[in-house]
Amino acid sequence: MLSSLRTRSFVALALLPAVLIFVVFAIIPIIWSMYYGFFDWKGLGAAKFIGFKNYEMMLQDPIFWRALKNNLILVVSAIVGQVPIALLLALLLLKNSFFNRIIRSAVFMPMVLSTVVVGLIWGYIYNPQIGLLNQVLETIGLESWTRAWLDDPKINMFAVSIPINWANIGPYLIIFIAALQNISSEVNDAAKIDGAVGSKKLFYVTLPMIWDMVVVAIVLCISGSLKAFDHVIVMTGGGPAQSTELLATYMYNNTFTVYRYGYGSAVSTMIILISALLIGLNYIITKRRS
């Protein structure tokens, strides 16, 4: 009894610094930001309490809905892009050969690059006059396909989502490889004896064994896509005419370009709510499936 109490208090004590830092630098700012969301505040001068007015304005602003839609495009592209590609690569690159390790590092590399660098590189690739993409299309005779990729509001959101997916596959690849390596060899042997090979093995043995990790990956995709910001701010800045605005850039522009701190705080609170909602939804759906 005494020793378990001692262990427990030791655990509490050891966790304390981390918890304190987390509370001071994550929880308290979130609460503050929720609080500011109820004010009409320019960041300078006096703040005026206006209740839920900021939220009302937000829901009536078509740009907010466009930003939300763009974010959902990113979420979907992350879930149907990043997760399956990472899983496929993980299955292919599972063995620890020299060649596989090189490919793994190559896939992981954009993750190590600064997002600003990734944004600039892709900005040049998409450049309508000197961009690599248009030049390649011209060389192979698809001149009619060339366009100003980041300019045309019909396609620029998809153009933007490609580099974001490209840069973010790395960590999922590592997660999946670790999960696959964790499947004990008995399970694999048993599957082999029972005649489960190929896609049968994948869907009835491998995937169920790593399903928890897939769920984690999807949660990470959702939260990562909802706070996506840096690639977009570098490539388009949310433009032209706010056609690639995301919730985070919408929040940033309102707060720091237009000086509506109160409104910006309300938007960031909304991001948290939407994020929680989507993750909850994902939890329910994947729970039922397993």
Binding site: G123, Y126, N127, P128, Q129, R147, A148, W149, L150, D151, N156, T236, G239, P240, A241
Partner: peptide, 21 residues
Amino acid sequence: FQDGANSIDNTQAEQYFIQGK
């Protein structure tokens, strides 16, 4: 204006101009 003027920055436009394009 050239195609895609909304997706290149001012410095790139200056370069484009000074190169006689």
